[in-house]
């Protein structure tokens, strides 16, 4: 359902074509000019087209570079790449909920409300407008070594066989697109923004930021990736190291079982199953460590 702009006194920007009022899409965007700067709302209005998504709205907003009240403004910045929900770069808060902008259809959004509200993710530092710095998300993947550790050029022969059942179990977890929706919606994952101090060297700053990230919650995506790679015959060779991270500061214990992560994951990854499995593995690991000392 598409709603036409009401024809009240000053709705003069509704264009007339062929005798009927052309539909307009109204968006309200929370903007921010620089990292650490003040944020402010700005309204835009773009012509409606069939099958629009939020990215196509943003493209029009950037092209016209004019706010609803006609002022020339700097084009809104945002991230996107694949436009088919596989790259994970276009996450933002759309009508208050975290989701991928490229798969958010405008007509459906206009069913919910007359105006579309766009905000940058709230758990990551804003770089500019809707662009955020999701470094911590990737740092989490490093913390749990979310990879299969074969890093040489020797021929190790064919790898171990993975049964179809194991593959079926692993496949959904492997579809994670690192979008960060699970982190954005998680009440236990809170923003860590480290600002460079006056006179601090780049190296010191990076080190301090890394330490801050490593003290924070790893997040549902990293827990799930740990379970993916621990279940892999070769990846599982460092299962203990991953569990060491998961039972360290900011590990699995921080999860409060709100299960928002699984509800918002655009790939419907069974995150709570991964979290419970990680909980079980952590239990066993901790007990084993206690007795193996």
């Amino acid at each position: 359902m598409i709603k036409a702009v009401e024809t009240n006194g000053h709705a003069s920007n509704a264009e007339h074509d062929g005798g009927h009022v052309a539909r307009r899409v109204r968006v309200r965007i929370l903007r921010q000019d620089v990292a650490g700067g003040e944020s402010y709302w700005e309204r835009f209005e773009v012509p409606h087209e069939p099958n629009m998504n939020v990215i196509s709205v943003l493209q029009k907003v950037a092209a016209q570079a004019k706010s609803q009240d006609g002022r020339a403004v700097a084009p809104v910045a945002w991230d996107c790449s694949c436009l088919e929900e596989v790259c994970g770069s276009c996450t933002m808060l759309i009508n208050g909920r975290t989701r991928m902008a490229c798969s958010a259809l405008v007509d459906k959004l206009l069913d919910e409300s007359e105006e579309i509200e766009l905000r940058p993710m709230s758990k990551f530092p804003v770089v500019r407008d809707l662009v955020v710095d999701r470094r911590r998300l990737f740092r989490s993947l490093e913390r749990v070594q979310a990879w299969v550790p074969v890093d040489d050029s020797y021929d190790h022969g064919p790898g171990p066989r993975i049964s179809p059942r194991e593959q079926e179990d692993a496949y959904p977890l492997s579809t994670c697109i690192s979008c960060g929706c699970c982190l954005e919606a998680c009440p236990q994952f809170t923003k860590i923004e480290v600002v460079r101090r006056d006179g601090e060297s780049e190296a010191d700053f990076v080190k301090r930021r890394k330490a801050a990230f490593d003290a924070g919650f790893v997040g549902a995506h990293a827990i799930s990736q740990s379970m993916l790679f621990n279940a892999h015959p070769t990846g599982g060779m460092i299962a203990g190291e991953r569990l060491e991270t998961l039972t360290g500061q900011g590990g699995i214990q921080v999860c409060g079982n709100a299960q928002n992560c699984v509800a918002v994951c655009p790939k419907s990854i069974p995150l709570t199953r991964s979290i419970a499995r990680a909980g079980r593995a952590a239990t066993v690991w901790a007990i084993k460590k206690l007795f193996d000392r």
Partner: peptide
């Protein structure tokens, strides 16, 4: 103290129970 309840934005059953 370390959590940030968000049941307003995400009114799912699990989240309501968390809160």
């Amino acid at each position: 103290a370390n959590g940030l309840p968000n049941v307003g934005s995400y009114p799912y059953v699990g989240n309501v129970r968390y809160t």
